[in-house]
């Protein structure tokens, strides 16, 4: 037996296969079942998808590396629930490709930030955090207000999202660019389509305070304001509900 083992090890290919086999076991056992066990992700019938504007804002969030300093995952610990709100459920990031749970809180957790502050507060804070909070160490994102949001390719973005499993309809994909504009221009003819496709609860307003222009600030604030509000499941679930 050990003669065989010795010969195997002498052969580079045998060593290669041995490494692959031994190294694969851990990943297989831990990851594969997550896809097949039903309880991994809870059911939440009211869970909605991101609107095109919110998705664009999420992409700005990713582009600027916000996840490096802000987590989006309230752990099941008393102090976290009291500081930030109900602990996060798996279903809440069901449509997050990729997830933005984060690993570091140089700034506070953002999983429950939606609706906590006004749009004006967010715009002023993003424009220069030290105008709002003198000791903040967050970078100023003043160019977001000046940069027009690119919307012509949002249909393609929704399509790619559908390819990885997010249930966007053909209607949503076809109207992606218009919906992005309409969500930040409540008086425009495109605004109605947004609530019609994404639900009555969708925020439709001029997030950056300038109804005529669609800026990256609109998108980012729209995204921040919907964080933790895609479903009510977390507020109703087990320990969170009794609190």
């Amino acid at each position: 037996m050990f003669g065989l083992h010795y010969r195997l090890e002498r052969k580079a290919i045998g060593l290669t296969l041995g490494i692959i086999l031994v190294a694969s076991i851990g990943g297989l056992v831990e990851i594969a079942p997550l896809f097949t066990i039903h309880q991994t992700v809870e059911d939440a019938p009211d869970m909605r998808v991101y609107t095109p504007l919110e998705l664009a804002g999420r992409n700005v969030y990713i582009r600027e590396g916000c996840y490096a300093c802000h987590s989006q995952m309230v752990r099941t610990l008393r102090d976290e629930v009291e500081r930030y709100g109900p602990y996060s459920l798996a279903v809440e990031s069901k449509y997050d490709h990729p997830m933005l749970w984060g690993s570091k809180r140089t700034g506070p957790d953002l999983a429950r930030i939606g609706g906590k502050y006004s749009d004006e507060w967010h715009v002023a804070h993003l424009n220069n955090p030290r105008d709002v909070l003198s000791v903040s160490v967050m970078p100023a994102y003043s160019w977001l207000l000046k940069t027009t949001l690119r919307t012509d390719d949002l249909g393609a973005h929704l399509k790619a999202q559908r390819a990885v499993g997010v249930p966007y309809t053909d209607d949503m994909i076809a109207n992606a660019s218009k919906d992005a504009y309409g969500q930040a221009a409540p008086d425009s003819p495109y605004a109605d389509g947004v609530t019609q496709r994404y639900g009555k609860a969708t925020n439709v307003r001029a997030f950056d305070g300038k109804p005529g222009e669609l800026t990256e600030m609109d998108a980012l604030v729209a995204y921040l304001q919907v964080l933790g509000r895609l479903t009510d499941a977390a507020h109703k679930s087990g320990a969170n509900a009794t609190r």
Partner: peptide
């Protein structure tokens, strides 16, 4: 866009 989402993506 990542093929995985949420908890599977995190793992």
């Amino acid at each position: 866009y990542s093929l995985f989402s949420g908890v599977q993506d995190a793992m």
